[in-house]
Design a protein around this nucleic acid. Structure first.
Lengths: 109, 109
DNA sequence: CTCTATACCTAAGAATCTTATGTAATAATT
DNA sequence: AATTATTACATAAGATTCTTAGGTATAGAG
C-alpha cells in the first residue's frame, strides 16, 4: 500500500492498539499492525519510535522498562489523558473516512 | 476535522474529482469538496495550488487557461496517464481504509 | 558461525502540509 | 460611493511527519 496514506494516522493507530490490548512494546506494535491488516500496513521503526517518545512526552502514554533475561523491553500503556484524546481522534478518523467515502463513491450526487 | 488526516490523500481527491466531473478550476475544487463532505474537509489553497502544479508537471493533469470577462480561470482535466494512475490510487486508498477499519474495529479478533 | 529475528535507537533528507501573505476582479452591503 | 466579502489565482517560510539509512545488541536457527 502507498505509505503516504498513513501520514497523520499513525498516532491514532498506536493509541487505539494500546487502548485495546493493555500494554505493548514497540516492536510488538509493528507486528500486531502487520498481523491485523494482513501485511497491508507496515509501520517502520523510524516512524514508530519517535512517535512513541512524542506521545509519552505529551502525557498520552506511560512507559515502563522491563528486563527480559539479558535484554529489555519498553512497555507502553495509555494514560487517562490518552483515553480522552483517543475519543477525539476516533471521531476525527470516522469523520475523515466517511468524507472519503463520499468523495470516492459519489453515487448519491 | 483534524487536517493531519488529510495528509497523503489530497492528490487522490483532486484526481478523482476531475475524473468524475470533467474539468474544474482550483477554487471550484475547494468548494466542491466542502459541499460533498458537508464542510468536513476544507482544502486550503496553500495546499491545493502547489499540488495542482505538481500533478500537471507529472503529466497527470492538463491545464487550459480561459478568460472569463476581465479575469481568468485555469481549468484542469485528467490525462490518460492520470486515469491509469487513478486506478492505482483508488486501490491503495481502498486497502488503506479497509485496514483502518480492521485496526479501529477489531471485533472479529 | 553466520544469518535471521527480536528490540531498542537516531539523524538526514524528502514530502506534504499550515499559516501568512500578496494580487486582483467581481459582487454584495451599507 | 465606499467598504467588505467572495472569487480566483499564487508563493514562501516554517512545522510536521514521514522514509531511508544507518547503529547497537541479544537470541535463536541452520
Amino acid at each position: 500500500m502507498n505509505p503516504k496514506l498513513l501520514r497523520g494516522s499513525l498516532d491514532t493507530i498506536i493509541i487505539k492498539l494500546l487502548n485495546d490490548n493493555g500494554e505493548m512494546y514497540g516492536y510488538e506494535i509493528t507486528q500486531k499492525v502487520k498481523e491485523l491488516t494482513g501485511d497491508t500496513i507496515k509501520i517502520t521503526e523510524g516512524a514508530l519510535y519517535p512517535s512513541l517518545h512524542k506521545l509519552e512526552g505529551k502525557g498520552v502514554l506511560a512507559v515502563e522498562t522491563r528486563s527480559i533475561g539479558n535484554r529489555y523491553r519498553k512497555y507502553y500503556s495509555i494514560t487517562k489523558q490518552g483515553k480522552s484524546e483517543l475519543a477525539t481522534m476516533l471521531e476525527d478518523m470516522k469523520a475523515y473516512m466517511q468524507s472519503m467515502e463520499l468523495l470516492l463513491n459519489p453515487k448519491l450526487a
